[in-house]
């Protein structure tokens, strides 16, 4: 049976090292299969997160040959043959151990975003009516599996560590799913501008490139949100109108 060689980053926050493992490869195998095989046969304490193994839960995010990817959706046959495969944890988040990082910041950020607030029901029985096309637009954002690969690749977080000032692509997608929700009546534009730091995004689209759900993060979520912020805060007519009314 053919085999493949992996260089896996091992160790905790104290400093990682690369360990080399060689394991047998079967047809159709994905990177996660190989990692679990190495774990079962050679390194039982190799730390890795995974759940569904079908690209639906977003647990097994890692950097494969330097590219942020889901291990369960990366086929070995799609990687350069004969070369060792480099496996590292997501770089943007604090390392816990081996391939596992501390992503708890993401869960704290989400709680800061104003929650969904629906308009009053449309019908006497307390239900709403929505058109499929309005739903479709938001369903793109709701496909997000919270793998946090977009957060990992975003230079505002990865290189500049602005975790206190910037919520990252994942949560712009989340805000977009709320702001564009056909029923939602909340206004999140002030937070987008200030606490969420949407201005830091300079539209390099790295997030869109790594999204395993093919969400057009930049074009469909971030840019429309930026436009909404501009409309609220920088519209010259509104500004004039505001001055005339004696407000800021």
């Amino acid at each position: 049976m053919p085999s493949a060689t992996f260089q896996v980053q091992r160790g905790g926050a104290g400093g990682g090292r690369l360990e080399t493992y060689t394991t047998e490869v079967a047809e159709g195998m994905v990177v996660l299969d190989a990692v679990l095989q190495i774990q079962a046969e050679q390194a039982p304490d190799l730390a890795v997160r995974w759940n569904c193994k079908a690209g639906r839960c977003g647990s097994c995010s890692a950097e494969i040959n330097g590219m942020p990817k889901l291990m369960c959706m990366t086929r070995l046959s799609d990687l350069p043959p004969g070369k060792p495969i480099l496996l590292q944890p997501m770089k943007a988040f604090p390392l816990i151990k081996d391939l596992v990082t501390d992503v708890s910041w993401n869960f704290r950020v989400k709680k800061m975003i104003k929650k969904f607030k629906p308009r009053p029901p449309d019908a006497a029985d307390g239900t709403w009516r929505m058109a499929q096309e309005d739903v479709d637009r938001v369903q793109e954002f709701r496909k997000c599996i919270e793998c946090f690969l977009c957060q990992d690749v975003c230079h505002v977080l990865r290189e500049h560590h602005l975790f206190e000032e910037f919520i990252g692509p994942r949560f712009f997608v989340h805000v977009a799913s709320l702001e564009m929700h056909p029923l939602d009546v909340e206004d999140r534009r002030e937070e987008l501008k200030k606490a969420d730091g949407i201005g830091y995004c300079n539209i390099t689209k790295c997030c869109t490139q790594v999204c395993p759900e093919d969400i057009h993060i930049t074009d469909n979520a971030i840019i429309p949100l930026k436009e909404r912020v501009v409309d609220k805060f920088y519209d010259p007519l509104k500004r004039l109108f505001g001055r005339w009314r004696g407000k800021k």
Binding site: A47, V48, I96, K97
Partner: peptide, 9 residues
């Protein structure tokens, strides 16, 4: 084998 930190085994 290993220690108690994130040890799937």
């Amino acid at each position: 084998t290993g220690n108690r930190e994130f040890n799937p085994g």
